[in-house]
């Protein structure tokens, strides 16, 4: 069977469990899934298609880097740049730096994670996007196949309630 290069087949599922199973069997049969769209995260299916995210690792690294930078800055400001004498207390008042370090580390991890999310998920305010099915964020589960031979049957066989061809 031949297929057109930019033809896409959109399998619409009503049932979450059937959708999840369909994704699994497609993967088992080494059929390339272009993308899934769903109103709720179906974890198993998401993992099958998108793998797992490196965002937590990124956040962890940013956390360590910001913690060191913030402590470094506090030390610089309080000890090197302008040491002030607060009733004879040491300039390097380390224990009381912990609070600011903790809070600002959390803040910078949040901000950098949000930026990383925006970049990696390609989401930004005002982005125009292609909607494959207008009920994909309501109650339909969508599998998009392209460059797959006999895609319509492949999807129907696995329980799709409807298959839409899009060019």
């Amino acid at each position: 069977m031949s297929y057109m290069s930019d033809e896409r087949y959109i399998g619409v599922f009503d049932n979450e469990e059937l959708f999840d199973k369909a994704v699994q069997t497609l993967k088992d049969s080494n059929i390339d899934i272009e993308e899934l769209y769903m109103p709720v995260p179906v974890h198993h299916a998401v993992k099958n298609v998108a793998g797992s995210s490196r965002l937590p690792m990124f956040a962890y690294i940013i956390g360590i880097v910001s913690m060191i930078s913030i402590l470094g800055f506090l030390y610089y400001a309080a000890v090197i740049s302008w040491p002030l004498n607060f009733g004879g207390k040491p300039s390097n008042a380390f224990p009381s730096f912990i609070v600011v370090t903790l809070v600002l580390t959390i803040l910078s991890v949040t901000i950098f994670s949000l930026l990383a999310f925006s970049v990696s998920a390609k989401l930004y305010p005002g982005k125009k996007t292609e909607i494959f099915h207008e009920r994909a964020m309501d109650d339909k589960f969508i599998i998009v196949l392209s460059k797959v031979a006999d895609a319509e049957n492949v999807l129907k066989m696995r329980g799709a309630n409807e298959v839409i061809k899009k060019i």
Binding site: E35, P41, A50, S113, L114, Y124
Partner: peptide
């Protein structure tokens, strides 16, 4: 909505974040 479509790649990052 910042171009949210509910794709698996978006959900994966969304949940991680």
């Amino acid at each position: 909505s910042m171009g949210w479509t509910g794709s698996s790649r978006q959900w994966q990052r969304f949940e991680a974040l």
